[in-house]
Simulated assay, not measured.
Amino acid sequence: MSTISDEDLLAYADELLNLVTASTVEAELRKDSSLRERLQILLEGRDSGSISLGEVWRHGRITCPSRSEMGLYLMNALEAERLDYVTFHLETIGCAYCQATLAELKTAAESLELDAQDSQRRERLFASSAGFLQNRDSNS
């Protein structure tokens, strides 16, 4: 008998598990046909409308921080209590959805930083070129 819970099976199907747990569930599913059947029954039950309150919370991501709150987390601008919750949600719960959102926000922030650096470089280059061209024109 498998030790994998129904909640973990459904979370696996929705790709909401952290990498380690998802790998464990997948390995068990590959080995155990009765576990695959159990997952199929759970999915059919969910599709027929027979779902638990916990499933509604997970599927609706009710406990997930908002995207703007994740941005504040990234900037280290959250109040201490909320910072503790978001850290718990990301690291202890291991919400794959929020981890992906955070990774996307980090990439966007890095891109903006690079754009700002490029813009500053262009301005310095233009300023130095303008001075060079101005001196050249006055010598003519």
Rank of each mutant, 00 (worst) to 15 (best):
T87V: 04
L83C: 08
L43S: 02
R36T: 04
A116P: 00
G45T: 04
E110W: 01
R122S: 07
S119I: 06
S119V: 03
I4K: 00
T63G: 09
H89L: 03
E7W: 06
A77R: 13
L112H: 05
C98H: 00
S138L: 13
D14G: 06
A77N: 10
E69N: 09
M70F: 03
S140W: 05
G45A: 05
D115M: 11
I51G: 02
F126Q: 14
N139R: 15
I93A: 03
E79R: 13
Y73W: 06
L53E: 12
N135L: 09
I4T: 08
C95D: 03
S138W: 10
Q117R: 14
T24F: 12
N18D: 15
G94C: 02
S119M: 08
A100V: 05
A127T: 13
A80K: 08
L105D: 01
L17W: 00
I62L: 13
S33R: 14
T63S: 14
Y85L: 05
C98Y: 00
R122H: 11
L114V: 14
L53Q: 11
G71K: 06
D47M: 12
E7F: 10
L16N: 09
A100P: 01
M70Y: 02
Q134Y: 06
S66E: 09
L78M: 05
G94D: 00
D14Q: 12
D118S: 08
A22D: 07
I4L: 01
A116N: 06
Y73F: 15
I51E: 08
G54M: 11
R38T: 00
I62D: 03
Y85H: 06
A11N: 08
A80E: 11
G49N: 04
T24I: 15
T3H: 09
D84W: 02
T24C: 12
R136V: 07
S33W: 08
F126N: 11
R122Y: 08
A13K: 06
E123D: 12
V86T: 04
A11F: 04
L42P: 02
L74S: 05
R30N: 09
